[in-house]
Design a protein around this nucleic acid. Structure first.
Length: 789
RNA sequence: GGGCCCAUGGUCUAGUGGUUAUGACAUCUCGUUUACACCGAGAAGAUCCUCGGUUCGAAUCCGAGUGGGCCCACCA
């Protein structure tokens, strides 16, 4: 029996708090295991409403799978490696990493981490997320930090394994160099920004012939021009074939030749290939085997290859060379153009292409394999698969792993200062090569120097499924539980987190990392803009939760749209609106709970109709939940609650359930009570993954059990029922409306109601109908329902 | 340049060949307190983006276009 008058935020808070004390745990000995590779959020900023929604979904999945008999591995992970942490430390303490010394800087980073770590955890707890554990530790199922010794050790061990397998090499190559972060980054970390820029038309002399004009956006790279191209189909320049152009100001000859890369319509149709203005150039040099003449140094300044521009920054150099060209009358014209400039995903700084020695992980050799895997994994929604396929198909370089940064996993490698021999750390220990080494000296007697660089943070993140399943530390369990059941993640990190994880898992285990991948789209702000801290439109979930509660938030998340298919716009109004459904559920439960079943029930036609409908709901929810679709079932459940169960069934069987004037037999009364409870239990259970707190509370008070430990409802064999639900809804509505129109209350007695023959399927419901409408009902030859008042 | 997704009342959303086009939120009217005023009954509000085609019949299928969002790519 429900005691409290209504559902309140206070009750909700008490329940979620209580869950923290008794988390679900994870039984690694269980027969059926379902594992979720949760995306560890960055800890330096609290999670925003968008992330909160995605965690609600993961919690739907986890709770559903538990009710299907799985022990669910649902770990709480926090990402604490990498640039966001460093940036936060630099900002907070107003320092620069390169000025304070490595150990000091790491300390600053740790300080930032200590203060920020539990804001997100509190939000998760308030949301009622059923992580396997809220405790952090090394056991399977416990929370983890990506910067813990355990985790970093595993990252280093996988490096050692890959090195020994011959998949890692060090090489001097053109690298994407972020001027802000001062490190190489991978192609996957580059994004593009549409920019207006100037296109300069510059006059070149040609050996024996007329001058030509070439358009470029990077005049400061003139010195590194290796060849001039025109399109083979471009008749204007046919006669230039094999001739040489003379670089203005530098007086160096470069070959002119046809190549399809040059677009006749762009600029003058002539293009100078420099090392390196953009990715096009890099690819071209690579394919043509041209030797690059690098003009920009690691500090972003021009080097001696640029001659008179040496020592200037790129920006200054451009200004200077334009001045000189103008003076020499070689700058023909300047026009505006649009350019997609590569920028760093993290810092949004410009990328320059610079020759640097870095460690690389081979990935080009694995393209075909990973493509095959990408086609094999189940994608929810299926359309999201294409994002991954496109990315794999477009790969053109191996993965540069080394980063010239600090707060990340160190690369466990040492180099002999004398003979150059490389020494690797041994597995089983977390290494910090700049302050320790695995052996005193090299075999040759030379001194070992520890590697100062660290790994790309994706090199850490991409082993998360291996880590959570005990790779390297609990082999028996890993063997049983791998591949991981589900990877839930955002579409924007398909090219990084998902791709890298599939690659690494394959390289290390020869297996596909996941069975299912669930890709979520974005949560937009109320105006439809993507939430991001830089735009300042981030919605803090804590505030919403305090005002409307997590249950309303979760129900809204499920019902507002299908986030696996499209973006979702946040609306506080709608979230508030969902609270009504919670109250409705509460009140219906309160009503049902006032009846106790005594004796053997006898189900009437009305009851059987309801039981059948409930069955179809169970089946529908089960099928969709299994495909990570909570959106449609949530709609159906809500509709059932309001429009069928409360409005019609309840009204119809009230008289029989109370049975005050003994109009029905004891067994028939029992039938109503049995069915009321049966439907309520089913409804609560189907709703329980979505709104776990209120269903928990109601179930506990009425049925004295933990709803989250109950199995998912089973469908019973359908009863034979002649009555049609649609007919019932129609008849009720029409009678109620007619009474309304007469100004009568819904319960008011009328003399007689004639129903047309088409409603004869309702014959079995007559006793309930007559009681509910307080009248005698007959079937007759009328065309429409006729009421005698 | 290639590819993907989306387009339905003020807002959001359901609807994959035949419906008076679903529902929610918001608006308006009337009513009601023994499950529920975070309630009930009802009203108003939609050229289902445009144009073609297939079909007896299209919001639904096909084609083209327009407008959004996104991904990839060798726009100097």
């Amino acid at each position: 029996m429900l005691k409290e008058k209504t559902w309140t935020l206070k009750q909700e808070g008490e329940i979620t708090k209580d869950w923290l004390k008794n988390p679900y745990g994870f039984d690694k000995k269980a027969k059926k295991i379902y594992s979720i590779d949760t995306p560890p959020p960055y800890v330096n900023t609290p999670i925003h409403a968008g992330q909160a929604v995605t965690y609600c979904y993961m919690d739907f999945f986890a709770r559903y799978k538990r009710s299907k008999g799985y022990s669910v591995l649902f770990p709480l992970g926090l990402d604490r490696n990498g640039l966001p942490i460093e940036h936060a430390a630099e900002k907070k303490f107003k320092i620069r990493a390169e000025n304070v010394g490595r150990d000091k800087f790491l300390e600053y980073c740790r300080k930032v981490l200590e203060e920020s770590s539990d804001i997100s955890i509190r939000t998760f707890a308030r949301l009622g997320i059923s992580f396997s554990s809220y405790k952090f530790g090394g056991e399977i199922g416990e929370g983890y930090h990506t910067d813990s010794e355990n985790y970093r050790k595993l990252t280093q061990e996988t490096f050692i394994d890959l090195w020994n397998a011959g998949l890692i090499y060090e090489e001097r190559k053109v690298s994407n160099y972020c001027l802000g972060c001062k490190t190489t980054i991978a192609d996957a970390e580059i994004i593009y920004e549409e920019r207006a820029t100037d296109l300069y038309h510059i006059k070149f002399k040609v050996e024996q012939g007329k001058d030509i004009v070439i358009a470029t956006t990077r005049p400061e790279l003139l010195c590194s021009c290796a060849v001039v191209l025109y399109n083979p189909s471009d008749k204007r320049y046919k006669q230039l074939r094999g001739k040489h152009a003379i670089l203005p100001l530098y007086d160096r000859e470069v070959l002119i030749k046809p190549h399809p890369i040059a677009k006749p319509k762009f600029g003058t149709g002539l293009v100078m290939m420099c090392s390196f203005g953009d990715l096009t150039d890099i690819r071209f040099f690579r394919e043509e085997g041209l030797r690059p003449r690098i003009a920009i140094n690691i500090d972003g300044k021009m080097n001696k290859n640029a001659d008179f521009l040496e020592g200037l920054s790129v920006k200054e150099a451009r200004k200077e060379i334009l001045k000189r060209l103008k003076e020499a009358g070689l700058l023909v014209k300047t026009e505006k153009t649009k350019q997609r400039a590569p920028i760093c995903e993290r810092s949004k700084d410009k990328i320059e292409f610079i020759l640097l020695k870095e460690y690389y992980l081979k990935q080009l050799n694995f393209k075909e394999k990973i493509l095959r895997i990408a086609k094999k994994v189940n994608f929810y929604d299926e359309n999201s698969r294409q994002i991954l396929l496109d990315w794999i198909n477009g790969l053109s370089e191996d993965w540069p792993l080394s980063r010239r940064r600090y707060y990340a996993t160190p690369i466990p490698i040492w180099k002999c200062k004398k003979c150059g021999e490389k020494v690797l750390g041994k597995k089983g220990k977390y290494w910090q090569p700049w302050k320790e080494s695995p052996q005193k000296a090299c075999k040759c007697g030379g001194k070992l120097e520890g590697e100062a660089r660290v790994f790309d943070t994706w090199f850490d993140s991409s082993i998360s499924p291996l880590y959570i399943l005990g790779y390297g530390r609990d082999s028996a369990f890993f063997k049983k539980a791998f591949p991981c059941s589900l990877r839930p993640q955002g579409k924007e990190i398909v090219r990084t987190w998902l791709y890298y994880t599939l690659l690494r898992s394959y390289q290390l285990t020869k297996k596909t990392a996941f069975k299912d991948v669930w890709i979520n789209f974005h949560i937009l702000d109320a105006k439809g803009k993507k939430m991001s801290s830089s735009l300042g439109n981030v919605v803090d979930p804590i505030k919403i939760l305090e005002k409307h509660g997590s249950e309303a938030f979760r129900l809204w998340a499920a019902i507002e749209g299908n986030i696996a298919r499209q973006d979702l716009r946040i609306s506080e109004e709608k979230i508030a609106g969902e609270f009504k459904t919670l109250i409705k559920l509460w009140n219906v439960s309160k009503f049902v709970s006032s009846f106790k079943l005594k004796g053997q029930p006898k189900l009437t036609e009305t009851d059987r109709l309801m039981m059948n409908y409930m069955d179809s709901l169970v089946e529908f929810a089960d099928k969709n939940y299994a495909e990570y679709n909570f959106f449609e079932p949530a709609h159906k459940l809500r509709h059932f609650l309001w429009e069928i169960f409360a409005s019609h069934y309840l009204e119809l069987v009230k008289a029989r359930a109370y049975n005050t004037d003994m109009r029905f037999s004891k067994e028939e009364q029992g039938g109503a009570i049995f069915t009321l409870h049966s439907c309520l239990r089913g409804l609560l259970k189907l709703f329980s993954p979505i709104i776990p707190a209120i269903t928990y509370k109601i179930y506990k008070e009425i049925y004295n059990g933990n709803i989250h430990n109950e199995d998912f409802p089973k469908t019973v064999r359908p009863f034979k029922v002649k009555a049609k639900l649609e007919s019932l809804l129609e008849v009720n509505s029409k009678i109620w409306k007619a009474k309304k129109d007469k100004g009568l209350s819904l319960k008011a007695a009328v003399k007689r109601i004639d129903l047309p023959k088409r409603y004869e399927n309702l014959k079995g419901l007559l006793p309930d109908l007559e009681a509910a409408h307080n009248t005698d009902i007959v079937f007759s030859a009328v065309k429409e329902i006729r009421i005698k008042f």
